[in-house]
Structures are given as structure tokens and as C-alpha cells.
Nucleic acid binder design. Structure first.
Lengths: 166, 166
DNA sequence: GTTGAAAGCTTATTGAA
DNA sequence: TTCAATAAGCTTTCAAC
């Protein structure tokens, strides 16, 4: 039985996470009511998870289309050489670019998958120049224009359900 | 000049968003100090942006590896038919699956790009069966296993900088 | 180690100007 | 918009389990 065994997290922690990753403005008092704990206990657990890195951060999600970036694009990038220093350079240049919302280094036919948002296709063209054509280690890239963001949050599936109610 | 022209958002709003999408626990008082506004003014702007949908939501980001899901996979899915009802059925089944963190409907060689997190490759195998093999409209899918999440948040690039300081 | 309750402090929120 | 007052939440302390 290869149980995931979340290190040191009990069902209360997981129940709290399940709520916070959907809405972190829920007061500790309400969290306590939902998981059957006092607000103080909830607070301690939340702080511990923040300090230990289980909770990476607390964010407001902004609609890209409402701040002048209506176009989302998925880009697959293939590199020439997988030399470590060249890969690191690519990682750094991708991660540093403000238009790059997400960047994954992957196995398979592609080496990187980027998710970028831009104001216009002209801006995307400029992005391809500065990130891909100017990087001689980029062999080719594939552009997949997003027509519908069906699910774009960063909620994480949690292995457990609510703790039982009294 | 195709200026993005974020509808009704001024530089104060954008400066506030730039901070909140990195950390929405910053108090309104501190936000006010950074953008040169009172806490009450910041509060009103934040609420207006939440109500108007500029701010989609407020989330705690959870590290998938710490909650029993150490494997992230990017999947490209190609369908047989682009009939609307079949596409909608696929969208719904992808979006409804808890393991699917993100789902984009795209143009190009692929039709969907999914980002999934799983506890094990056995779990991924089960996912491919229930989402792809059991859906007869899925022609083929390509698996790209993520080796490094270089940038995985959902921060959005904002078109403007801080308002000037006094 | 853990918890819940109460205190004091900080922040959010509302209304007046 | 700012300021001031109230309401609400956060955080710490403490006694107890």
C-alpha cells in the first residue's frame, strides 16, 4: 500500500488546506467551526504550515484579460543541448520574463513548457524573439494559443476529506 | 499605439494588484503606504476589484509534493472530432477531475493541455484510463513529466509600475 | 506534545466631513 | 478622498489536558 503519507499533516491540517486553497480570507474562527477546532488551534496549524513550506504563499488571483493581457499561450520549447549550464541559463531567462506565468522543465519530446500571457500577438512575437530566437540553444518551439481557460487556478487535490463532525 | 487600456483601472489599482498577487496578507495600511493612499481608499479599491472580477479569488498555494502528490505532469490531448457537444463533454470531464489542476483548450496540433498532479505513476496510469481511454473522442495524448517546477504560481504580469512616491 | 479561553493588539469596515 | 469610531479578526498568554 503506497500511502502518500503527507509528512506530519493530519486530517485537520488537510481539511484546513482544502478550504484555504479555495479562499484564504475565511476567518480562523469559521475554519475552526468547519473542522471542529478552536480559532487559536487553527491559527497555530496555519502558521506551522506556512513556516514549514506546506503553504507556499497567499495570493490574490488576477484575471489577465482584465489587466490588459487577454491572450494566453502554451509554448513547448525544445533545446539543442541539455548541458547543465545551458539548461540553467534557459531556466533563468524564462523565469525572469514577466510575461511567463508558469515554466516547467519536462521530460519527453519537449524540454520546457511555458504558459505566457500577452497583450497582443505582436507582443508574443517580440517574446519569441527575446526568449527563443536570441537563445541559440533553443532548437524549436511550438505555439498553442489558448482559446478557453477551462481551469486555471492552482488548487491542489488533497488526499483526505473533512474530519468528522461531532 | 494599441495600448492595453485596462478598463477603469488606474495606476493605483495596478500597483495594489501587483502587491496582492504576490501576497494578499499585506494589510491595507501597508498597501496604502506603498502606493500613497489611505487604508480606507485601498480597501474600497480592493473591494471594487473583487466585485468586478478583476480579482478572481484569494488563495493559499499548497505545495503538491507536501500533500502526497509529488508528481506533476503536462498532458497534451488530441481529439477525434471537434463537434461542440463532444468538446464540451471532454471539457467537463477534465475540469471535474480532482487530479487536473489546470486545463486549457488550445489551437494547434493539440486540443487540450492539462496539468495534473498525482501521487504515483500508477495513479497517472489510472487517470489516463478514466480520462482518455474511456473517452472515445480522445485520439491520442502526449505525456510530459515535470522534472522541475521552475515557476508555478499564477501571478499575472501587470502593465504598469508603482505610482510615484512623494 | 496538544488543546481552548481570554486578553490585548492589529486590521477591516463603516460613516461623516 | 481622509479621518475617526466601531466591529472584527489576529496573536499571544496561560492553564489544562
Amino acid at each position: 500500500m503506497p500511502e502518500p503519507a503527507p509528512e506530519g499533516l493530519d486530517r485537520f491540517d488537510l481539511a484546513i488546506l482544502a478550504i484555504l486553497q479555495r479562499d484564504n480570507t475565511v476567518p480562523h474562527r469559521v475554519l475552526g467551526e468547519r473542522v471542529n477546532l478552536s480559532a487559536a488551534a487553527v491559527h497555530r496549524r496555519v502558521r506551522r504550515m506556512e513556516e514549514s513550506g506546506v503553504i507556499i504563499g497567499n495570493f490574490a488571483a488576477v484575471d489577465p484579460a482584465r489587466v490588459g493581457q487577454p491572450i494566453t499561450i502554451v509554448v513547448e520549447v525544445q533545446v539543442e543541448s541539455e548541458r547543465l549550464d545551458l539548461l540553467d541559463a534557459a531556466k533563468r531567462s524564462f523565469a525572469a520574463d514577466l510575461a511567463v506565468q508558469q515554466c516547467y522543465y519536462v521530460t519527453g519530446e519537449a524540454d520546457f513548457v511555458l504558459i505566457v500571457t500577452v497583450a497582443s500577438m505582436a507582443d508574443y512575437d517580440a517574446l519569441t524573439r527575446r526568449l527563443f530566437f536570441e537563445n541559440h540553444n533553443v532548437k524549436r518551439f511550438r505555439t498553442l494559443v489558448v482559446m478557453d481557460r477551462i481551469k486555471a487556478g492552482l488548487a491542489v487535490q488533497l488526499p483526505d476529506q473533512n474530519p468528522e463532525r461531532i
